[in-house]
């Protein structure tokens, strides 16, 4: 648990904010000003999005804070697992087989 009862300047938040703006601009740059193939672009900007989500989660939302920090982490990992199953599962099931025969 981090001690948060300090009157220091919130560097943590400021760094997180600057990083998230920078990552957003970087994603725009990769999309519009590089000549990678479409799928590589999606992989790169997708990774950047995950970094941004982690910034929010750790620097703004303090996911590991509190007595149940580890439960929050398990909960988030499990939810991300579910998200992956739902997204990739649905795409796989609905765009292969009969649907691929359009």
């Amino acid at each position: 648990m981090s001690s948060t009862h300090s009157s220091r300047f919130p560097w943590n938040h400021l760094i997180g904010f600057i990083l998230s703006i920078a990552l957003t601009l970087l994603a725009v740059f990769v999309k519009f000003y590089t000549s990678f193939s479409d799928s590589i672009v999606v992989w790169i900007i997708g990774t950047l999005a995950i970094f941004q989500a982690l910034i929010q989660l750790f620097m703004f939302m303090h996911v590991t804070e509190g007595k149940e920090g580890w439960i929050n982490v398990v909960n988030m990992i499990y939810s991300v697992f579910l998200a992956l199953v739902i997204v990739f599962g649905s795409i796989w099931v609905l765009t292969s087989g009969h649907a691929a025969m359009h």
Partner: peptide, 28 residues
């Protein structure tokens, strides 16, 4: 309060599922 905060994190887990379903449908 600890329970309220934990409960809200669990709710956010449900929200992740909700939005990933919306994303999955969008991708399809």
């Amino acid at each position: 309060s600890q329970m309220n905060i934990l409960g809200f994190w669990i709710f956010l887990g449900a929200e992740i599922v909700l939005f990933s379903t919306l994303f999955a449908s969008y991708f399809v």
